[in-house]
Structures are given as C-alpha cells and as structure tokens.
Design a protein around this nucleic acid. Sequence first.
DNA 1: GTCTATACTTAGATAGAC
DNA 2: GTCTATCTAAGTATAGAC
Lengths: 204, 204
Amino acid sequence: MSILSKLSFKDQAFKLRETAILDATTAILASKGFDLMTMDDVAQEVGISKPSLYKHFKSKEDLVGAAMIRLIDGALDYLEAMPAGLSPIQQLKDLLAWALRIRLEGGMPFLPSTSTHVREMLTRNLKYVMRVLKLNSKMEVIVQQAQKQGQLNAALPVDVILFAYYARTCDPAVEYLQLYSKLDHETIVESMLEVCFSGLKNQA
Amino acid sequence: MSILSKLSFKDQAFKLRETAILDATTAILASKGFDLMTMDDVAQEVGISKPSLYKHFKSKEDLVGAAMIRLIDGALDYLEAMPAGLSPIQQLKDLLAWALRIRLEGGMPFLPSTSTHVREMLTRNLKYVMRVLKLNSKMEVIVQQAQKQGQLNAALPVDVILFAYYARTCDPAVEYLQLYSKLDHETIVESMLEVCFSGLKNQA
DNA sequence: GTCTATACTTAGATAGAC
DNA sequence: GTCTATCTAAGTATAGAC
C-alpha cells in the first residue's frame, strides 16, 4: 500500500511537471514561434535541466506537438461545454472570441499556419492530426447548420468558410492592433468578430 | 570612353545578378519562410557561391530586407498605375487580388506577420520602414475615402480596417485552399475578396 | 530521474588564393 | 569579384556520474 501510494504520488508529480513544461512551451511558442524557441528556453523557464526535459519529451517536435494537442483539446472542451440551444453562428462567434482572448493574453492557439515547416511537422504527428480532424468535423457540422439556417453565406463553399474562420484565430491583425492601436482587448475581440462575420464593407 | 562603357557594362551585369538574387530570395522565402531559408539555398539557386552572395548583401537580414522592399515597391507601383476614377473600394479589391495572385504563383508578398523575430528584424531596417509608411499613408487615404463614400463600414476604426486588410494579403487560408480544396486560383481569389469585404455572414 | 559536460550538426559569415 | 576552404556560434540531443 505504501509503495503504491508512493508510486502514484511520483506519478502525480511527474504529471504536474509535464503540465508546467507544456505551459512554458505554449507561452514561449506564443512569443517567439517555433524556430526561435530552444529547448534551453523551455528548460530554463520550467527550472529544470535539458536532459530532464528530454525524459518527458523525446524531441522538440514531440514537445510542440503535445502543446498543440492540448490547445486543440481545449477548443474541443470549450465546444462541449457550450450551453445547448445556442445558435450555430453564436457558437462560432463564442469559440473565436475564446481563442482570440487566449491569444491576447499570450496563450496562442493554432501555430500551424506560420510556416510550411511547422505545418509539415505537425502533419507527421498522427495524434495531432486525429484531434484536428475531430475538431474539424464538429466545426463542419456547425457551419453547415449555420448555412442551412441562413446565418452564414450559403454561396460560399464550406471549405472556404472553415479555412477563413481558422485563419482568424491566428490573424496577425490582432498583434498589430495590440502593438500599434490603443484599443483594449475586448474592443479588439469585438472588432475581429465584426470583420470576420460582416466584412469590411458598409452594410446598407 | 571604352573604360567608361566597360564599367557601365559591369555595373549592368552586377545589377542583373542582383535582380536574380532577389528573385531567388523571394521564391525561397515564399516556400520555406525566413528561418528555414539559408544563404546556401540562395547561392545555389542563383548559381553563385556564398561569398559572392555576400558581396551583394552583407547579411541575411540585409538580403531579406531588400527583397521585401522590392515587394512593397511593387505594390506602390501597382497603386500608381491604377486607372484614375476607380472607386476607392475597387482600388482596395484590385490591389488585394493582385497580391493574392502573386502569392498563388509562389511570389509571396508580406512576410512580416509570420513571426515577431522577422517583424523586429524588418523594423530595424530603416529603408524598409520608410517604404511601409509611404504605402500605409496611401492606403489610409483610400480607406478614409471609401468610408466617406459609404463603401466601407465607417463604424470601424481605420486601423482595424487597415490591419485586417493587410492580414488578408498573407492569409494562410489561401495556402490551405490551394492544398486541400480543388478550387482554381481565380476562384480562390474571388472567395478571399468576398470573405474580406462581405464577411462570412449571410447578407439578407 | 536528475544533473554536468559534451558530441554532432547546421548555418551565418569570412580569409585568402586566383 | 569569384571561388575553395574554414571559422564560429548556436542548438538538438545524449553519455555518464550521482
């Protein structure tokens, strides 16, 4: 019994450290991006040595893959937790607002678009790809519902809507507005939603 | 006289090679991005040695800066060459379509958004910053005209419109549509314009 | 499992011959 | 000005002591 509890305690500590590593990785990825993030950065941020880091994740690709999977899971959880009866378009708006708020606080979702290198790396990560496909099928359903109910433009192919939507979660305009405009976070989120769903054109 | 013409001939050859270098750089940047592009890549693509490359550009930053400046100049030229009397919103649409077509053909404009690293590097390049500011002031005028004439949403801050617009020129949705959808180039361009100006929402 | 110290590789930049 | 050959720094990954 004492051995068992000791083991599970060790396991718990291991899990906790793993969470700390993924937190650090996510934050560093958000600020420096994949290529500039070094394993030294991560180890130092967590307060462990590099070899210890490699005990948890066998490579940089592995580590970043795990961080990205956690983000996708976060999105899936958010979708799951949504109040029933929310209109499809409101679901899309809420999810985008959630992602943008995380980004504005330095938590970055959705790195894959930044470079072909990173994209190919993630494409080789089977577990990651499976999560993305799962999220994507859920999103596809929501978009089709929204089109059927006349909330989204039904003339646009579903692919176009989905990719345009995903691209908004990592839109560089967010960082530029944060840097060069005096708008606060919530105003930036609202503006991005407005631009995404209503476009730049005058509606009249 | 013969010396002078010989010199100017040499100068011409030098300029030609410089153009070839910038072409290669632009193409490689478009496919691999800044971090993965090596000076060896560029030298090999042009068919010269690395030290020769360094005779033209004193560093990788310098080289990429020059390539980006040429792209901005292309945009400025395109604006300049526009037929007079074109409505402001049509100018914006034409310029965006022009940029997207270049991207679809592997010519990439507007790298700066890809990472903070690249952005900071370009920010240190005075010549580049000056060109960007010049382009930006022209764009600002067009956007304000469009708002005044009721073509663009006047409720949105000019900054929001400009950054959202710039972001569309390097929208990752373009690459995803190119990769995963069966849409041809022109349909992608039209879809992106539609999404940019009218948004995803149903217009009714 | 954790650390110190180190091997290996890549890529930016240059010395020196021609 | 161009090349071959090389320097140097950085960063991924690991060997081996504790």
